[in-house]
Design a binder for these strands. Structure first.
Lengths: 347, 347
DNA sequence: GATTAGCACTCAAACGAGTAGAGTGCTAAC
DNA sequence: GTTAGCACTCTACTCGTTTGAGTGCTAATC
């Protein structure tokens, strides 16, 4: 059987209406709102579309609901890109840049804006720092028994840990050790630094060495890992309560329990492809996501740092709108954080 | 009418059973499980207790439910402190100290443990830093146009911001400016620092002054505020789905929406009294909390830093258990972070 | 006088029959 | 190939009935 022009139009109409209303769509509705023929004709066509796997039937006497196959077709072929109007763009940019001056707050803000616009649950991943290089290592005394260990990377990311010392250290010792560590590590990527044999490389006096081995080394590793770690920001969690799909308390519960396992979510996001990726229903490996769709996009900062953002929602979502917004956001993040280059004045 | 011995016992029985089952308690149930007389006797007593305001009646032919007044009496007089067994204490300590080496992670961990044990929603507030004093200010170059502004406080808290400069700065200028800022601000509390007239106090060369005014000052204020700001950690949000009180999707929704307004929650927590504070139902000012109880406790670190933690749940909660756990946790936090004093080897 | 047994009464929740309405599938006419 | 017409299906809703837990009251008992 062929997907004739009219069949496509009817399918598109069903998808559009269902995305709006979340109710199964009957032949009469389509017939009234689109001039595609009488209810009976539409019924025949719908019946064909069902046979072809694009529509389903909750029960014999109800209207039609798009299948995952239909959404896939829609996303790949039928959907036309929804250009954002200048006002929309301005509104987004406005929201996005509200007192933001480090990358992570921008990312967090992006998740917020995204959830606001789409009325779905949004998330954003701060960039992976594998290729980022260490620049400085500093040790600053707090009191006799504690120092701040501070790492600064080329991309401007700063991480610090307060380290408790087993024995008090002189400022001199700290200075020497910090200098020595910087000498050894600066220019190395974070991942390299983690795999280096640390003790071997240090050449310092006995006191510094002992302090390093006993107190600093474990914190150093932890701080490196901390720098490498991506942060997951989520927003709009309660948006799902507005969706009829989640009227059932059990559904809402399992959604929240899934979304709360942040480590899992991060893992899943990282392993998604580059660019805009849309997965629909059971295309998501995960059983828990089998009636959700996920849309993610990748942003790049300065050609080196890479992160993701996106939304999760029911398979019935405004794919066109979400795609546009997600794309616009990633573009803007990339533009806002051109490192090293002299930056284009604010907004 | 008097609260006779038997009335008290019956009241206590109703409260205990209701906390367990969330179902209205009938006279037969009490009569069977406690030897306090026949159902008819219990009925008469319950009727009196209702007249006195300790019990209510969802409808004529249902069992009794404790009123807020009953919970208040229970908490103030009837409840006996539930001592934690050594195993319970060990289990808590074990969970609590899992790879924790800064105060904030300990606080976060505490919220986690608390929610796990109580099966309620737990929160913890990192300490307010008003009395904390600035120790260091540092400016570290990242590249020509950006520097890290870093503040270290007496309590070991470190905050940093990456500042974009309008014009490139020499390392010398940065060093001079940092030294000068440290000279002016070290020893001041964070709140004092915020109110000081910054520009007035600097005595540095023209280049440093201009950099300060144009680039550093706004970030400095922001970083100070960031240091002052308390963090709110929450855990066990999805626990409420297991409670019959939140079987209604609307209730669950408004709970989540309330709990998501983090700024509000922080505000409310901060304004609560010292020590263990229990507020029941409409004792909470907030209409949104009118069928919740909130239990908070205060921890002190080193006599200067003060923070809070606690749980929020339905008025029907295990007040005795929650109180004990919350108390044990705050004690442990205080002990774990005796700053300056040589620390007592772990656990 | 306090306690208890007994009984009529109340109400929510569960169940089931009946109905309305939306929608389909099929047939026959256009 | 399209459409009107009609029988049929199924859900959602309504309404009356039943069941069972529990009360309140009265009268008998301790």
């Amino acid at each position: 059987m062929d997907l004739t022009e009219r069949k496509l139009k009817i399918l598109q109409a069903v998808i559009a209406d269902f995305i709006k209303t979340a109710e199964p769509i009957g032949s009469r509705t389509i017939s009234k709102n689109y001039s595609l023929g009488s209810p009976a004709t539409i019924r025949n066509e719908m019946s064909d579309l069902e046979e072809m796997g694009y529509l389903t039937h909750p029960h014999t006497s109800s209207g039609r609901v798009p299948s995952e196959k239909a959404y896939r077709l829609y996303v790949n072929e039928l959907m036309k890109k929804r250009e954002l109007s200048q006002e929309e763009k301005d509104a987004i940019a406005n929201e996005l840049y509200q007192n933001v001056n480090e990358l992570d707050s921008l990312i967090e803000r992006a998740a917020h804006v995204l959830s606001e616009i789409t009325s779905l649950t949004a998330f954003a991943l701060s960039p992976g720092k594998e290729q980022d290089k260490l620049r400085y290592i500093n040790l600053l005394p707090v009191d006799d028994y504690s120092v701040v260990l501070m790492l600064v990377s080329d991309s401007g990311k700063v991480s610090n840990t307060v380290v408790r010392l087993k024995a008090p250290a002189s400022e001199d010792t700290l200075r020497i050790l910090a200098k020595n560590m910087t000498y050894n590590y600066s220019g190395k990527t974070l991942s390299e630094a983690l795999t280096m044999d640390i003790i071997q490389n240090l050449k310092a006096d006995a006191e510094a060495m002992s302090m390093f081995e006993n107190s600093i080394a474990p914190s150093f590793i932890k701080t490196l890992e901390d720098m490498l770690n991506v942060n997951l920001y989520m927003d709009g969690l309660t948006n799902i309560f507005a969706l009829p799909e989640y009227n059932d308390i059990q559904k809402a519960r399992s959604f929240f329990e899934m979304i709360n396992r942040k480590a899992d979510i991060t893992q899943k996001l990282i392993s998604r492809g580059d660019g805009i990726e849309i997965t629909i229903g059971r295309e998501n490996q995960d059983a828990e996501l089998s009636d959700c769709s996920v849309i993610t996009a990748t942003y790049h900062v300065d050609g080196r740092l890479v992160g993701k953002l996106g939304v999760i929602g029911p398979t019935r979502m405004k794919y066109d709108e979400v795609t546009s917004v997600v794309e616009y956001l990633t573009d803007n993040i990339s533009k806002a954080f051109m490192l090293t280059e002299g930056d284009d004045d604010d907004r």
